[in-house]
């Protein structure tokens, strides 16, 4: 018979093991970035390297022009993207809650259909490169896919309907407030919890995105717009390219142009550090986001 106490003990033990497994790879990344490069090359990455080093981080400080620019781009895209996304989503969601809006049903149908059908990535690629020409610009990183989606719209408009009292809105309209100021000054401040929840999810999406860059930044002209994720991705393709050349042509290739193996680990760690630091503070909204949107999202 499993008693409550025994069950609790085992639950703790298993969850501790799972928690350790969840972060073990990240610990290897951190230790790898502090490993001496020659040691990493001869002994491989290890949790117990025989020689430690901070060389990789010295390289990052020296190469800050490239990595700092990537960081700046990531922050820019995340901040602007999330801000725009929240405003567009909230305004659209608010419109859906207005009773008797002529054409409201058509707009709702438009939103629902967007959940079901899509033209696929190739058609989207043609639209964004031939009709709305966003290739090689910040818009290439902000516009595709993340600005508004049906799930978030439904979440905010349900929140407006159920958690914001219609009387308060009506009262301020009677006081002569315009529709815009009702939205900005009353509705949005009252909806901070849901805005924080979808805002966090959107911000993580932008911070981690590399697919928009993969499709819409060209190798030749996309350089200035690369975010930290895309710099990491670019380093990877160079490593792959050199490795395939070496194996196909049997040549010893010049690897001096790409960051050394430990430096790559350090750049990756620098890329995830802000999220790791900030996570305990936004964890609440993240968990909330999963539980309200997870089933359908």
């Amino acid at each position: 018979m499993v008693t409550g106490k025994k069950m609790r003990l085992w639950s703790n033990i298993i969850l501790i093991i799972l928690s350790v497994f969840a972060i073990l790879p990240i610990i290897l990344l951190i230790i790898g970035s502090f490993t001496d490069n020659a040691t990493a090359l001869s002994e491989g990455f290890s949790y117990f390297p025989s020689k430690w080093s901070t060389e990789a981080y010295k390289y990052i400080i020296d190469a800050w022009a490239m990595i700092g620019k990537g960081y700046l781009n990531t922050i820019l895209v995340t901040a602007i993207g999330t801000g725009v996304s929240l405003i567009v989503t909230a305004m659209f969601g608010y419109g859906l809650t207005v009773k008797g809006l002529p054409g409201g049903k058509v707009i709702t149908a438009m939103l629902i259909i967007s959940m079901l059908f899509n033209g696929g990535i190739v058609a989207q690629y043609f639209v964004y490169t031939n009709f709305v020409r966003i290739k090689d610009s910040y818009l290439a990183l902000i516009l595709p896919n993340y600005v508004m989606n049906a799930f978030n719209v439904i979440l905010v408009s349900n929140y407006f309907r159920n958690n914001v009292s219609a009387e308060i809105l009506e009262a301020s309209r009677i006081d002569g407030a315009s529709e815009f100021s009702v939205f900005w000054k009353i509705l949005l401040p009252l909806s901070v919890p849901i805005l924080a929840t979808i805002g966090i999810m959107t911000a993580i999406g932008y911070w981690n995105d590399w697919m928009n860059g993969l499709y819409y930044l060209s190798p030749r002209n996309g350089g200035p717009y690369r975010t930290i994720q895309l710099i990491l991705n670019e380093i990877n393709s160079q490593v792959n390219f050199l490795a395939s050349q070496a194996s196909q042509l049997g040549l010893t290739v010049d690897t001096s142009k790409i960051p050394s193996t430990t430096v790559r680990m350090a750049i990756a760690f620098v890329g995830i550090l802000p999220i790791l630091i900030a996570f305990p503070f936004f964890q609440k909204y993240f968990v909330k986001g999963i539980s309200v949107g997870g089933v359908k999202g």
């Binding site: 059908f117 899509n118 033209g119 058609a123 989207q124 043609f126």
Partner: peptide, 9 residues
């Protein structure tokens, strides 16, 4: 832009 034009694509 994001959803309907691609459907024609």
């Amino acid at each position: 832009i994001n959803n309907y034009l691609p459907m024609f694509g």
